[in-house]
Design a protein around this nucleic acid. Sequence first.
RNA 1: CCCCCCGUAGCUCAAUGGAUAGAGCAGCGCUCUUCUAAGGCGUUGAUGUGGGUUCGAUUCCUACCGGGGGGACCA
Length: 536
Amino acid sequence: MREKVIKLLKSLIPAGTPVVVSVPEDERFGHYTTNVAFALAKAEHVAPLAVAGRLVGELMRRGKDFFARVEAKAPGFVNVWLAPDVLQRNVIEIVKRGAKFGASRALAKEKIQVEFVSANPTGPLTLANGRGGFLGDALANVLAFVGAKVEREYYVNNTGNQIAALGKSLTVALGLNLRQRAPDEKLYQGEYVKAWAAVHARYAEQWKNDPTKLGEAAARDFLKSIKQTLAKKAHIRFDRFTSEKRIYQKKYPTRALALFKKKGVVRKKDGAVWLKTTAYGDDKDRVLITSNGEPTYFFADAGHYLETKRRGFTTKINILGPDHYGYKARIQAAAQLLGLKRSEVIITQALLLVRGGKEVKMSKRRGEFVTFEEMVDEVGADAARFLSLSISPDTHINFDLDLAKERSIKNPVYYAQYAYVRAKGILKKLTTYNLKLKTVKEKALKCLNTPEDMRLILKLLEFPAVVEDTARDYQVHRLPRYALELARAFHNFYEKERVVGETPEVALARAALVNATGIVLKNLFGLLGISAPEKM
RNA sequence: CCCCCCGUAGCUCAAUGGAUAGAGCAGCGCUCUUCUAAGGCGUUGAUGUGGGUUCGAUUCCUACCGGGGGGACCA
């Protein structure tokens, strides 16, 4: 619906004028509202209200069957109300489109890789990993819903220093190898390290002088349980686990380097090889290969980005944790150099853990942390996901575990799911009408004219725009917010209007509306990755 | 010292430069003979501080004050 209003407006004003149409929170300002008159007034040097008045006249003339009312309101807003029969007609449209309502082909030409989680397999997933996991999963759902070819990728850092450090940690945990250890060496000290070492004591002893080999073996196990947690507990899906080792084997980093050299953005200094990322907005150049001839993490990442590009992706979205802040600029520099059409790096902000009013410091190395799995177990997958997705990635979260657990029974997610339960409950009692729902005619919906009906229909019709906006700006937290608004509109409808026991015409019309609500809620839950329960 | 993010109700969070700043939780009143009261209705309550930009600023700029994260030829 918003699209139609925008289209109509665009036909009335000079091309290139940005048109923003929004749904005002206050109903007195219409079903839709726009501030284009302000922009036009500035360009034409006339009063905004006069421009708004002119637009109102034009809109009424061109859309007299579409609008019930159009008004110009000081200081220069244009507010429109849709005609009731337009709204009623669209209820049928929703029912017809079913699971496809809200879907589109908007990004049909795009091949998008979403890289997320990508936690080092040196231990269990942290809460920050989980936050990124939910985000990536839901974002991938949205992009696929608007037609993009989407790949969900987990990049596994299964080589390098941290793997060797893990190996050493295991031998230390068993009391082996103590003399060789440098005093300031960083080690992983969590319970999980001791546990693995205890179970694999003989193996660890055998390979105590080859920490990398030992670390790799443990990393394989840790990755396996990470996969379990993601798939079974959190319902976070991946299409591909890309190994850093394999990126090296396929020589992608070296090929990326050759490409950089060809572009003249590589320099040598103090025996190291640097990429001139400063030319692309970074605040300092970055080392690709150290003076010892060691490749850096960034070197491998550049190779990884080249692989993504070579595999035909037009867009890459990389979701990283807060410890990667300094990384964003250099990754974007590499992405640009390698020729990706669009590259986004989303940094999720810190998630501060609180338990009993006290901060819980997280450190994988010291082993003090609550794992993602523990949190999901405590509050439930749907609640954890909804809560996490409701918040902008830019926001620092103070996550109180005790509160989350205590609150889980009345978590907002249940408010939304309960609306679905109620909708399904009604439809179950109306089996005779269910048969007619598919062939319901526009005329039959005339009785959907109360304020509650109208509000609900309007809210339902917002869905495609919500999806579209999210696919464009990646602000996934818009979805849970919308879910609560829609649930509210339905709960209000439910309190006010009855379906079962009304006259056949009324029952059928309202059943169609209830059915449409169920469809939108289900589609929405699908995007969010939460369940659509029929009973609670 | 430099860079990034945040500061909104008692708490956790919203608000593409728009109109009277919204939810949830917590608190206080109502509300189930009727499709599930995990609901509905009412009520209390907020933009860190000072400047600036403009028709209009929670949003943009600037200087402070607080909180968090980052800074290496580590990952």
